[in-house]
Design a protein around this nucleic acid. Structure first.
Lengths: 376, 376
DNA sequence: TTGAAAGCGCTAACAT
DNA sequence: ATGTTAGCGCTTTCAA
């Protein structure tokens, strides 16, 4: 049933190599022949078998995209941007979801390895050393994580967290909570580091609550704890968590932003549609997707794995790009943040909250702040 | 660099066919040899090249999942269920997004055709005839669309729309709007058909507004028109649109459900977290994903395309399953619907709802109907 | 139980 | 410009 290159050759009275050339190097074939071959191919419904082709060229023209959680609205824009960029370069994208499971991540890389020319690892949860190891099996670009020696696309969430804290401090908040995300998240560590530093610099106290599931449920589940902690402002790991928190606080009768200010991270579509509209740190997800694809393809070109002539100098000239790109973030101020107890303009509710001994910061450990550590 | 079966053979001092057997038919190889081969393989980091294997077996152990829009929260649960089901059967899933673009759909099917054993087409926007044509290239299972002669997984949105309208009529609404979705959506047509019939039966007037983009933006954009239309209740194509509409109405100062009742479709996670919580028609997306994978694999097994011995009787015994499965939906009543202008004073019940047509089968229980499907 | 050989669909030297 | 030939990495008869 499947029509092969041989069928087309037979039908058009030429050798299979001519048919092959018609598709992969049209300029090397006589225009008349080409037309005839093309006609026959069209006629028979022939389509080159990309897998077979890949076996010999070493290039599948596919790229893999491994995502921690497709259900997180943060990712779709990244996926779409990556797909669009890939399509422009005649590549197809295969997306795979890992459910935030490190084991699934590893397995998926193995499964994809031979069927794609490279893999984009988005917000991976596995260890850096495993990532490095896997990168020897297939070209990798890591998104939202810093792995030394590998090309990475990062978003400056450190800067974002700093801006958020400064915004809150500027509004008069002195007691702020950071809702942490998954423990193994690079973003989480960066935010924590930067937020601590910014809080210290601004004379505010930062309580870290978490880790939490990076979802609405994770946010609403921590609402009670937030209320008890007595903070007047919260920076959440992401928008989903922030939105869930607002819902949760609302259910407890705590008003946002009147009683507690909330800042998210990501600027997902939804954050514009909730009430109150969410103040958030916008991350350039589309740019990240595009950049990651570019970096992968660029690196790919230099090492066409398993190609014919690679008999001798395989490892030769494999000059891997290890550039790391840091994308800017932007604080978008909307309606979920407002004046805090220490706001400049004389506020009637100068409630002397005093330096309250916050309850022990939940499952997570309190504030850390390492220098410019890259290690992990 | 990539280690092949030959490297393992050399290292373990056996012929490549023995190595091959060690992986694909272990019982045919001497236990001692097997252990030795496995050890060498492990040592070298060997992994069978699935693509090369597929070339000869005709089975890639991959399935493709083509999705209209990954950003629509309706799909992730379906994707996750499909992936989990596939994994149990030692299959991997490649997801591809089409941006609701019919052309992209077609191209993607072609691209995937040779790299997967079958494709799940979710909420396709292309024509039925094109779908049928593509199904000759690769086994297809269609989700959220009825295509005669092809295996389909459907959700009973007709029943859902009917329940929704009856709920609204029972609350005293007599002037209802239906916010339509994409024109080429089967779901859209079904909802419209059923909603009209139910409205007529209930003595209510139904206004169809649309088509609209099946997103929050689509919903908020139509708010003004809804207000002007003077209806007291709205059934939206999906939850996203419903949520957008509520936001839009709110911005116009129209209160939900006090002034206008709103019903969505899908029961996405978010619908539980908005205020008011959304009344919606729950669709069994997880069950749909699982069922679709099952149907695909079942059909697949019967026709291992391009296998070795298929020289003569290729088309023989290719008995394609054309079963169509209809999954139940359920109306979930929350806070976005309330009494309408014709509500019974005092006792709102006793409304002549007629025989409640709730099927005995719970949500997600497949009802199978084979063969000759009803044309749409 | 293992080896030898053929070949899946295709491309890429090398001839002609 | 086209045909020949040798594989890509693997599985699968067929012998031994």
């Amino acid at each position: 049933m499947p029509v092969t290159i041989r069928d087309v050759a037979r039908a058009s009275g030429v050798h299979i190599s001519t048919v092959s050339r018609t598709f992969s190097a049209p300029h090397l074939v006589n225009p008349e022949t080409r037309v005839r071959v093309l006609a026959c191919a069209e006629d028979l419904g022939y389509r080159p078998n990309r897998a077979a082709r890949a076996l010999i060229t070493g290039r599948t023209h596919n790229i893999g995209l491994i995502i921690a959680d497709i259900a997180n609205p943060f990712f779709p824009p990244l996926i779409k941007a990556a797909e669009s960029q890939a399509r422009h370069r005649d590549y197809h994208v295969f997306v795979a979801d890992t459910n935030e499971d490190p084991t699934a991540e590893e397995e998926l890389v193995h499964a994809l390895a031979k069927q794609v020319d490279g893999v984009l690892l988005c917000s991976p949860r596995m260890s850096n050393s495993l990532i490095e190891q896997l990168s020897r099996e297939v070209p990798l670009v890591v998104v939202n994580r810093q792995v030394t020696g590998l090309p990475c696309v990062l978003m400056d969430v450190g800067q974002g967290a700093r801006s958020a804290i400064e915004h809150l401090v500027g509004l008069g908040h002195r007691s702020i909570a950071l809702l942490g995300g998954p423990r193994s998240s690079w973003t989480n560590r960066e935010m924590r580091r930067a937020a601590s530093a910014a809080a210290r610099a601004g004379g505010a106290e930062l309580t870290v609550l978490g880790p939490n599931a990076p979802t609405e449920v994770g946010g609403s589940a921590i609402a009670e704890q937030v209320r008890r902690s007595g903070v007047s402002a919260v920076l959440a790991y992401n928008d989903l968590m922030a939105i869930g928190l607002i819902e949760g606080l609302d259910a407890l009768g705590v008003r946002v932003p009147q009683e507690v200010s909330v800042v998210g991270v990501d600027d997902i579509t939804l954050s514009r549609l909730t009430r109150p509209k969410l103040t958030t740190v916008a991350t350039p997800t589309g740019a990240a997707g595009r950049t990651a694809v570019d970096m992968l393809l660029q690196q790919d070109i230099e090492s066409p794995r398993g190609a014919r002539g690679s008999g001798a100098g395989t490892a030769l000239g494999v000059r891997r790009t290890t550039a790391q790109v840091m994308l800017q973030t932007d604080l978008v101020i909307r309606d979920s943040t407002g004046p805090g107890p220490y706001a400049r303009p004389a506020r009637p509710l100068a409630a002397p909250r005093g330096p309250d001994p916050h309850c022990p910061a939940g499952p997570g450990t309190p504030t850390t702040a390492t220098g410019d550590a890259v290690a992990s």
